[in-house]
Design a protein around this nucleic acid. Structure first.
Length: 617
RNA sequence: GCCCUGAUAGCUCAGUGGUAGAGCGCAUCCAUGGUAAGGAUGAGGUCGUGGGUUCAAUCCCCACUCAGGGCUCCA
């Protein structure tokens, strides 16, 4: 990591890391009994894990801690590096009553201190002894506070830029569930005040765009205690979004030769015992039968089911590739604390597909899938980046190593051919094969995994899938799993926040709102005629003839982020022309232009069909 | 699952050991209004659920459920 860092990144890293020490200095000043865990740098800031025993820190204490931190900063204490022999370091930890540090040091000693940098960096946090001599560990001291630490640090405590303590959270010691839980104090930090303010502004913006808030405001989905956690219900408006996205995905797949199939949402558990998923997947919903002794489960994925369709009859090499698609819901019993709005749910819908291919067809098939992915996200205006998720040396994977190497090479070849911006992640593969994981970056610069392509030699083996080759021999096909949107629910959570609810016309639940100037019969009649014509053209239009002022009705349409609003009264009835009010993000040329009502509707219908983001009006 | 915080009207939230309030929304009426909030009146709450303390609990205590922030996990 360090060797790739630019100078300014290094400087910022040192600032954040130094702030972690300064915060620990402040905390140990206020609570002298505080036991310290680790205090590393994270995205945008730093944290320190502390254990106050019976006491606890709350966010109300932040003022006090920050005040103490400023005292340390203003004292301009130099950061001084020193090395201690390991045994002396352990004595230090015992003497200063720091059991967590002592544990780390004992581990370092056991591993041989010079090996420290090869240990799991996360497990050890910042603590390694990379810069120290054999048998010694590295320390940094500022003023009265000394900490086991590899550095780097700024020269003195006043050179740390701008920071703010953000929150306190629980965290297990060394990230292991069985370990004692400590309190993690998070802060954000930047080189300048301006950057800090910009970051805080982004957080505010993210809060405003939170899909749970917008889902409520725009009437897209609801949660019901009676239905249960992690089981969102979609309103008519939210369902439009789902269906339009699914239609787009299925259109792309149909063009690429995929055929729709359908599988029930539950199965005998034997299916999953055969596929090998059963033991790897404890988060399943069991379903019991009153009528038989069979054990059932809800499907947590779709591949084993679809494999049975392939297996239902003999296949010839001439038949391949066989491509099945199914947009279907699967059920995963996520732990309650892991659920989050639409992004982590217990019933998730995927635009799933499985292609059964000969070995010589794999590359072309994966390339074709990547083309679909690129088209989808170009239309959705979301930039992509790609991880190749490969296996590591552990034995968590099924299948022969040579096949894996072969499969991984094939995925990398496709990534190269397609000129994808990719990096390789070892240890991130599925147990049955390597993956191409596609990430999208949203308007706030956050990165999310949605689409995935997975190459699988294991399930064809487990289900004994075959085809007859030209030499009349029985051969094993490969299976290619893919989802373009991934989970529709998770995709929507990202997309709602990306667009802040300002959906392009083709996705907007309501595309045109017709506002009446008064409640006279002829006005309402005219508005309804416009709505009917819009519906005839395949558009989604609503009439607002409520007993409110025009200003109020405009405001309501604006708040609902409706792309086009038209106001109708005597003028429009007479001329059959309107000046549409266009949502500002879609406007290319400024200025209001009158347009014939029919031409207006036809233009919107065209924009809907072409799935464009901007308007020609 | 674990730690911390929370739950009061459809929504956003104030408040109190002596059974409740605002704004928005909703309903009715007046106003017939021309591009981001016209006016008046009214309905609407077992204060998340169960237990405990108390003469008395929406408020204090405990448990549970759900939600939020994290941890862990995400085939």
């Amino acid at each position: 990591m360090e060797e790739k860092m630019k100078t300014e990144d290094k400087q910022l890293y040192a600032m954040r890391h130094s702030l972690a020490h300064i915060m620990a200095t402040a905390v140990t000043t206020i609570w002298p009994d505080a036991k310290l865990g680790v205090g590393p740098v994270v995205d945008n800031g730093f944290y320190y894990d502390i254990d106050l025993g019976e006491a606890s820190v709350s966010e109300e204490d932040f003022k006090r801690i920050e005040k103490e931190m400023y005292r340390v900063i203003n004292a301009k204490q130099p950061f001084e590096h020193s090395n201690k022999p390991i045994d002396e370091a352990i004595t230090w930890a015992q003497g200063s009553n720091q059991p967590y540090k002592e544990e780390l040091l004992n581990d370092l000693k056991r591993a041989g201190t010079t090996l420290a940098s090869d240990l799991d960096a996360e497990e050890l946090g910042t603590i390694t002894s990379g810069d120290s001599a054999v048998g010694e560990v590295s320390f940094y001291t500022n003023g009265e506070f000394t900490d086991l630490c590899r550095g780097p640090h700024v020269e003195s405590t006043d050179k740390v830029g701008a920071f703010k303590l953000m929150r306190v959270a629980g965290a297990y010691w060394r990230g292991k569930e069985g370990n004692p839980q400590m309190q993690r104090l998070y802060g954000v930090a930047f080189a300048t005040k301006e950057e800090l303010h910009e970051h805080l502004r982004l957080l505010e913006e993210a809060k405003k765009r939170d899909h749970r808030k917008l889902g409520q405001e725009l009437d897209l989905f609801v949660l019901s205690d009676l239905v249960g956690p992690g089981l969102p219900l979609f309103t008519p408006r939210g369902t439009v979004l789902r269906q339009e996205l699914i239609r787009f995905s299925e259109d792309l797949q149909r063009e690429a030769g995929y055929q729709a199939v359908w599988a029930p949402h539950m199965t005998r558990v034997e299916l999953y015992k055969t596929s090998g998923h059963f033991d790897k997947y404890p988060e399943r919903f069991d379903v019991s039968s009153v009528e038989s002794t069979d054990e059932f489960m809800l499907k947590p994925m779709n591949c084993p089911h679809v494999a049975q369709i392939y297996a239902s009859r003999p296949r010839s090499y001439r038949d391949l590739p066989i491509r099945y698609m199914e947009t279907t819901t699967m059920y995963r019993d996520e732990k309650s604390g892991e659920l989050h709005g639409l992004s982590r749910v217990r019933a998730l819908t995927q635009d799933d597909s499985h292609a059964f291919v000969r070995h010589d067809q794999i590359k072309d098939e994966i390339s074709a899938i990547m083309e679909m992915v690129k088209r989808m996200y170009a239309v959705l205006d979301l930039p992509l980046s790609v991880d190749l998720s490969f296996r590591d040396d552990s034995d968590n994977y099924f299948g022969e190593k040579s096949l894996w190497a072969d499969a991984e090479k094939m995925l990398e070849d496709v990534a190269k051919d397609q000129d994808l911006d990719y990096k390789i992640e070892r240890g991130e593969a599925a147990f049955y094969g390597p993956k191409i994981d596609i990430y999208i970056s949203d308007a706030l610069g956050r990165r999310w995994q949605c689409a995935t392509v997975q190459l699988d030699y294991v399930q064809p083996e487990r289900f004994d899938l075959t085809y007859i080759d030209q030499d009349n021999g029985s051969k094993r096909p490969a299976m290619i799993h893919k989802a373009i949107l991934g989970s529709i629910e998770r995709f929507l959570s990202v997309y709602i926040e990306h667009t802040a609810g300002k959906f392009p016309v083709w996705l907007a639940p309501e595309q045109v709102r017709v506002i009446t100037v008064n409640q006279e019969d002829k006005t309402i009649e005219y508005a309804e005629t416009v709505q009917q014509e819009a519906t005839r053209l395949g558009l989604r239009a609503e009439v607002d003839n409520s007993n409110e002022s025009v200003g109020k009705k405009i405001r309501n349409a604006t708040l609902m982020k409706v792309p086009y609003t038209i106001v109708v009264g005597d003028k429009e009835i007479e001329t059959n022309q309107v000046i549409p009010r266009i949502r500002e993000d879609m406007i290319v040329q400024a200025g209001e232009r009158p347009i014939g009502m029919n031409e207006f509707l036809k233009t919107v219908a065209h924009e809907h069909k072409a799935r464009v983001t901007k308007t020609s009006l």
